[in-house]
């Protein structure tokens, strides 16, 4: 998500949990500890978003696997019929009703309502398989709620929530800058081979636009000549 990374390059107040920091944390924290943190976060969110949980219980019971393609873990989200849980899993062989795959940044953007899920689907940035009604129901139910994971994670620190939020913002900015620097260094040392597929696609789009513009110009010229003929 270039747009996402670009925004984070600026020293601005952090209003959402940044993907690089989340990715780092989710990759290095031991699984059992991470599961405990997730349980705590879910309990906290039950308090801060009661309507979300109430709405989730209105859905038909389902297990949806959320699979960030840039993480070693997946999340099994179980909801409906009065219960809700999130379980961290490794591998993708556990049974589920449906699965959503995409980069962590895209999934976080969707969860927090910053990006449209259908757009991600059209552009193939996310992939869905299995029971579509489970995914549609989940997506719509999450979108009903204004979720800010940064606030929810910070609130786990109780009375220290405000300094924790500031610290998270600071750490995330440092992590983001570090990532950008590393990416720049990598690009300098390993000039990327041209993505011929994408540039070809871009050329096709440009060719089509030029063709359309030429057509429109030709029409304008014909009309102009007609007008001139009439006025003369």
């Amino acid at each position: 998500m270039m747009r996402h990374s670009f925004i984070l390059c600026f020293p601005m107040p952090m209003d959402h949990l940044p993907a690089p920091l989340s990715r780092l944390a989710l990759s290095v924290i031991p699984t059992h500890l991470l599961q405990r943190m997730i349980d705590l976060l879910v309990r906290r969110m039950q308090q801060s978003h009661p309507r979300l949980f109430q709405n989730l219980t209105r859905l038909n019971a389902a297990v949806v696997r959320i699979e960030p393609t840039d993480l070693p873990h997946s999340f099994m989200l179980s909801y409906g019929s009065g219960a809700m849980s999130v379980t961290l899993v490794q591998g993708s062989d556990l049974p589920c009703d449906a699965c959503v795959r995409g980069k962590l940044a895209s999934l976080l953007d969707m969860l927090e309502g910053r990006i449209d899920g259908d757009m991600m689907f059209f552009s193939r940035d996310i992939d869905i398989t299995g029971d579509t009604s489970a995914i549609v129901g989940l997506r719509n139910t999450l979108d009903r709620e204004e979720i800010n994971l940064l606030d929810d994670v910070a609130s786990l620190c109780g009375p220290l929530a405000v300094p924790a939020r500031k610290a998270l913002g600071l750490v995330s900015r440092v992590a983001e800058r570090l990532q950008n620097r590393l990416a720049e260094m990598y690009e300098t040392r390993h000039p990327a081979p041209a993505n011929t597929h994408k540039s070809e696609a871009a050329n096709d789009v440009l060719r089509a636009e030029v063709k359309t513009l030429k057509k429109r110009l030709a029409k304008f010229e014909v009309r102009q000549k007609q007008r001139e003929a009439i006025s003369s």
């Binding site: 299995g130 029971d131 579509t132 009604s133």
Partner: peptide
């Protein structure tokens, strides 16, 4: 096209 009747299937590199 109710969601209950929609399915996406992966086949090779295609959906």
């Amino acid at each position: 096209a109710p969601a209950s009747h929609v399915a996406y299937k992966k086949e090779g590199g295609c959906t």
